[in-house]
Design a protein around this nucleic acid. Structure first.
Lengths: 342, 342
DNA sequence: GTGAAAGCGCTAACAT
DNA sequence: ATGTTAGCGCTTTCAC
């Protein structure tokens, strides 16, 4: 026996509009009109229909409605890395807020940084007839999307540019951000500056590396070269990498970490060091202020919001060439990046 | 003129199964069988159909399929607070991973801590015929859900218990966690212990407050009483509250903050203090190790995973009384909670 | 191994 | 102001 209010009685088939109409003593279409608050329904009829609906516990079948209205849902898909990474969750949060304003809902999926899975997810979303698809792509090429865009499903690339297909994108000024970090450290008199970066084949990392190098070149500095470390993919390896750097005979006097995970690892390695090197990290993070960590900051939530906005404009019928929105960066000096050369 | 590979040509209506069948020269049903890899299709026929589908850029219409199959989607809804809060995003990440194993997809929505909006979102999800609904509820009562559960949509409450309706739930051992934090501080010799808590009307906070008080009572300690601060709802107010506490004539020698946001605020207030009080925070967080912050930890991702598991069992037909899974906590000593009494 | 007909629950078009 | 008919794109009978 179920307790009163139990949510676990036997599943009862949901009532349909036909049943509501029958109970209210009106035709199907009248019931539809009444529940959708369309004009041309007598107030009394409307009330009778709504009472019948309440009595039966009727709830509109969105699937049937969507099929009839043209097989297009109110869903927008987001394919990204793990939401447990604060960068992705900040992006998702920005997207969700923007979409909600337009009555759209966000469906999220994690690509596990696997391009095969990513493609599979794209297909699944398209089958579900999402109105738009936002992707923080893991795949290196996206040719297979070209045919889709022409079928009216707008794509927006987030954080990483499209490759092999023209599509809207929202990107961070990676190169500029990296240059300003590098200049910041050069300005402090540093010459032996280490760069710890993630997978160099991903565009954002490549741009950060290139930006950093451009600054060094402009300053006529080549002393940084022995301290370049790329393809460091998680915090643990970043920690080990930084420890190794500091154990060198001529250790770097400053370190630039190219994303939030790497900064975390570096902070662990620098912990308890009496005379830590200067440190600037790409991506701001919670408690960076308390830790006194200087960063290249940007607004990930705004990035999500802009991506959702671009998608919404396409959904609303905007046509025209692909657009790219660039999110600016700024150096926030909190101490770690201003440590003197030792 | 669109560039080749442009995603923004005119929207072309998607081909239907009927068109694929016509092109392949078979009947609608045979095409359906072939694409769904059902038995009883000649290999050659199957190939012809799939070629036709590729040629047309056919993609199954999931909406039509779902309608025909009984108007139930492969979506599972999650209604929670802002994903920008790492607690919620960790929960979402755990849910998403678990659901994916079963071919289900996660749809997220933010309730903005507003019970009216929450109810609206519940209705929207039900209209979309989600298979299950996971909620970190903001509303205080959930009676209105009772009628829904009986219609076969399983509800799982996450982090906060259902009130007014029987439903599955995944909860943290808030009381036990708070007691162990309190005991930890008492064990360090502290007597004037401040408790900084969020909205006391939310169950998790109330339980943490009650657990803390129970420990104090058991230890015969009443000295903490002047230092109780509740309804501190964000990091900024937590920072101010802690500053105020420390400015008292007899400041507390230890502080217990009842969630991650409040701990963040407290850390800001304690920053640069020469002799900070002891601090233990509820909820673990990134970089707590670097900051040396002692916490009551629990596994938010596991919480999401358990919630998804409960939901999936209901979806798969499990009936029976509502179950509650309790996620255990543990104190992680990192220094801040072990500071001596001064 | 293949096909014809019916219908999921709703809304659009066209009566009345 | 209300009702009738048709049909969205698919899967499910049931027949061949």
């Amino acid at each position: 026996m179920s307790a009163p209010g139990s949510t676990h009685g036997a599943a009862v088939r949901r009532p349909t509009l036909t049943q509501v109409a029958a109970l209210a003593g009106v035709s199907l279409k009248t019931a539809s009109r009444a529940l959708n608050r369309e004009p041309n329904v007598a107030p009394d009829t409307g009330r009778r229909v709504r009472d019948a609906a309440d009595l039966l516990g009727y709830r509109l079948n969105g699937i049937a409605r969507e099929l009839r209205r043209g097989a297009t849902s109110t869903l927008v898909g987001l394919i990204s890395g793990d939401l447990a990474n604060p960068f992705y969750s900040a992006v998702a949060s920005g997207i969700e807020r923007e979409l909600r304003q337009h009555g759209l809902q966000l469906v999220t999926a994690n690509n596990d940084e696997d391009s095969g899975l990513e493609r599979h997810l794209v297909e699944a979303f398209l089958e579900r007839r999402v109105r738009a698809l936002l992707v923080v792509p893991s795949a290196d090429r996206h040719d297979y999307l070209a045919v889709e865009g022409n079928r009216g499903v707008p794509f927006v690339f987030v954080d990483r540019p499209p490759n092999g297909v023209a599509a809207d994108a929202v990107l961070i000024d990676n190169s500029g951000g990296a240059r300003s970090a590098a200049d910041h450290l050069l300005g402090g008199g540093h010459r032996r500056i280490a760069l710890v970066a993630d997978l160099a084949r991903k565009a954002p990392q490549r741009e950060r590396i290139d930006g950093f190098m451009a600054s060094m070149r402009a300053a006529g500095n080549t002393e940084w070269e022995p301290y370049l470390r790329t393809d460091v993919h998680d915090a643990r390896r970043a920690e080990a990498t930084v420890r190794d750097l500091l154990a060198l005979p001529d250790p770097p006097t400053a370190i630039f970490t190219a994303n939030n995970r790497l900064t975390t690892g570096a902070l662990r390695a620098l912990r308890d060091r009496p005379e830590p090197p200067a440190l600037v990290g790409f991506d701001d993070f919670d408690l960076a202020d308390v830790l006194g960590t200087s960063v290249v900051a940007h607004d990930a939530t705004a990035m999500g919001r802009e991506a959702a906005r671009l998608a919404y404009e396409r959904i609303s019928g905007h046509t025209g060439p692909a657009r790219t929105v660039v999110i600016s960066t700024s150096v926030i000096a909190r101490g770690s990046g201003e440590r003197p050369v030792r």
